[in-house]
Nucleic acid binder design. Structure first.
Lengths: 160, 160
DNA sequence: CTTTGCCTTTGAGCGCACTCGAACCCGTAG
DNA sequence: CTACGGGTTCGAGTGCGCTCAAAGGCAAAG
């Protein structure tokens, strides 16, 4: 059904590169709420994973080093990102950009590994984070009001 | 009309401390959109300014050191924050929490000092920042969706 | 066979925004 | 008078999250 097994990594690399000419680097809808596109190859190189997620290969390796991520290797010892790995990266990115510190994220993912009985702690963690997101939304609304106000007066002469 | 001149700094310090017992550290509405309360003393000590803005005295001194802020001194050489200084601190804080780097903020405030003819540059700067705020709002909405999803399934068993 | 280019690991370095420490100065309370 | 709880300066230290450098391995292209 899909051609993953029939293409070499470098062929896929080229295909992706071609595909990305002249379009937005990441289609936001593709990975909205962790949904990955159906035609995503089963196994991706680090460069492909970086391209798709918008992170750098450096950052992906870093995340793995600190234990946020576990990624398989191919026969040459190269990292090979499967759909689950990609989903986790997207999840991590969502929480990171919403201000969750790496330590907290790390803790949450440890809880997930530890199994079902940690659900209450994970819930508490997420609830706390939701509160923080909502606080940030309020802060941003205020900042937006100030910024719009300055824009309205063409750069703002009054009270810097 | 107000009692500023009639109270010593230490009396005002005590009054503020008393006032802040058992209430939220900062009333968000008070300083919404740079509006400061009318009964704010004309001159505040660094501790009072810190209390009101939610920054630390360390941070206020730091901001002054790097040129973000200019603050007068009293006869003893102590910093004395007037309404204009407070308004600027609130402005700085709004832009900081919305992710504007100190360097950019610094540049903007320099432009303000340089006078009216820099208005176009300030406008451009603010427009760019508004775009960034709106991007952040989109990111936060996505993060909120993910977080709510996890909360809905009590800590999230599926796809970490 | 060699070049080219992406991959690997490890440890070190960097930029930002504070945050702290040391040493010293005011002014009020006891 | 002296102690104390603020304040002052300056330079240095911290924590976070990457980001890079060095030294080397694999594999397709010329």
């Amino acid at each position: 059904m899909n051609t993953t097994e029939l293409l070499t990594a470098s062929e896929r690399r080229q295909a992706i590169a071609a595909h990305h000419q002249g379009m937005a680097p990441i289609d936001p809808d593709l990975i909205c709420l962790l949904e990955l596109p159906d035609d995503l190859p089963e196994q991706l190189t680090i460069a492909e994973a970086a391209e798709i997620t918008g992170l750098t290969a450096h950052t992906l390796r870093y995340y793995e080093r600190i234990g946020l991520l576990r990624v398989g290797r191919d026969s040459a010892g190269y990292r090979s990102y499967d759909r689950q790995a990609m989903a986790r990266i997207v999840f991590i990115t969502r929480l990171r950009v919403s201000g969750m510190p790496i330590g907290t994220l790390s803790h949450y993912l440890d809880l997930v590994e530890q199994g079902e009985h940690t659900a209450p702690q994970r819930l508490a963690l997420m609830q706390e984070h939701r509160d923080q997101i909502q606080q940030q939304l309020r802060d941003l609304q205020l900042a937006l009001a100030v910024t719009d106000y300055k824009i309205a007066m063409y750069g703002g002469t009054a009270a810097p």
